[in-house]
Design a protein around this nucleic acid. Sequence first.
DNA 1: TCTCCTAGTTCAATGAACGAACCAATATCG
DNA 2: CGATATTGGTTCGTTCATTGAACTAGGAGA
Lengths: 166, 166
Amino acid sequence: MALGKDYSGQDCTLARALEVVGERWTLLIIRDAFYGVRRFSDFHVHLDIPRAVLSARLSTLVEHGVLAKDGHEYVLTEVGVSLWPVVHGLAGWGERNLDGNGITRLFVHYACGTRIDLDGTCPSCGGGPIRPGDLEIHPGRGARRRDDVVSKALRGPHRMLTPVET
Amino acid sequence: MALGKDYSGQDCTLARALEVVGERWTLLIIRDAFYGVRRFSDFHVHLDIPRAVLSARLSTLVEHGVLAKDGHEYVLTEVGVSLWPVVHGLAGWGERNLDGNGITRLFVHYACGTRIDLDGTCPSCGGGPIRPGDLEIHPGRGARRRDDVVSKALRGPHRMLTPVET
DNA sequence: TCTCCTAGTTCAATGAACGAACCAATATCG
DNA sequence: CGATATTGGTTCGTTCATTGAACTAGGAGA
C-alpha cells in the first residue's frame, strides 16, 4: 500500500486486496470507471483529486490489472469489473447505515426497468446478481448538484460501463 | 476521512462509507473483530499497528456505530456485522485475482461443515448467504506463521464472532 | 503500599497528500 | 508555417497523517 509500511506483516488476502484498492481515492476512481469515466481530465474534474495522486493511482491500478490503458483511456478490465459486488455492497452499506442526504444514485436493471436490490439482484427477474453492464445509472433524490462536465453527463440515465460523453 | 481533505465534495454513499471504513488499517481491524479479537492489546499484537493509530481507529468506529465498547472490549455491532459481505467479497477478490501465498483462511459453514462459496453462500445447503456467526474459521494452506498470541489462538478452527482466548 | 498489566497519550521524525506551477505532445487556427 | 489551445501528465514546497518509541493513567493482586 501507500505508507512507509505496507501490510506485508499481514497474512491475509484482504490485506493484499487493500494494497491494491485500499488507498485513499482508489475506490472512488473505480466507481467512476463503472460510471463510464475513462479520461484523466474527467476523473480529475469529477473527483477533485490532485493530479499527482490521480496519476499515481491510475498507474498502480493498471499495474495490477484492474484498469487497462488504451490510448488516453483507462477502462476496467474483467478483474476490475469483478469488484462490482464490493463497490455496490459498500455503497449500499453506507446508504443503509450512515446519515447523509439520501440516495444519490439508483441502479436499474436495464432489461426490465426495475431497481436492483441492495444485494445486487433484480427483484422482478429473480435469479442471480445482475452484471454491471446490464445496469443503468439514474440520479437519486439526494443528489447534490455539482457543475463539472462529468456530473452533468450523469444527470440523465446512463448505461453503466459505457463511456460518458463530455 | 483522514486527510486534510475528506471526501466532502463527493456526492455518493460510497464516499460516506469510505470516510468511516476506508482509512488505512480500518478494514483489517474489522476483519479481526469478525475473527473474535476484542481487546486493544490483541488488535495491537496481531496487526502490528501503531498504538496511536489503533486508538484513533477504534474511536471513530465506535463513534460511527460499527463497534461498541463494553468495558475493555470492542465488539461489532449489527451495523458492523453487516459489513461481512464486503469484507468477505474483497478478500475473495484478492484471493482470485492477486498473487500471493495461496489461501490463508477458509470459512466453513458450521452447521454442515462445507466451505462456503466466494459469494458467501453454502453450496450444500443452498439458499441465501450464510451469516458470519454461523461460520467457522480454519487456517488455509498458504497461512504464514506469526507467533503472536492471536495468531496462535486462530491456528485451530474457531467460531467467527466468538471471543478469541488469549 | 508496591508492582504488574492493560489501555491508552505524547511527541519527534518520516512519508503521503495537496495544490499550484510547470512541461511535453498533439490538435486547431490564422 | 507559426501561434495557440487542449490533454495528460510531472515537479515541488507546504501541510497533514502515520510511525514507533517513550511515557502516563488506572485498576488488580500480593
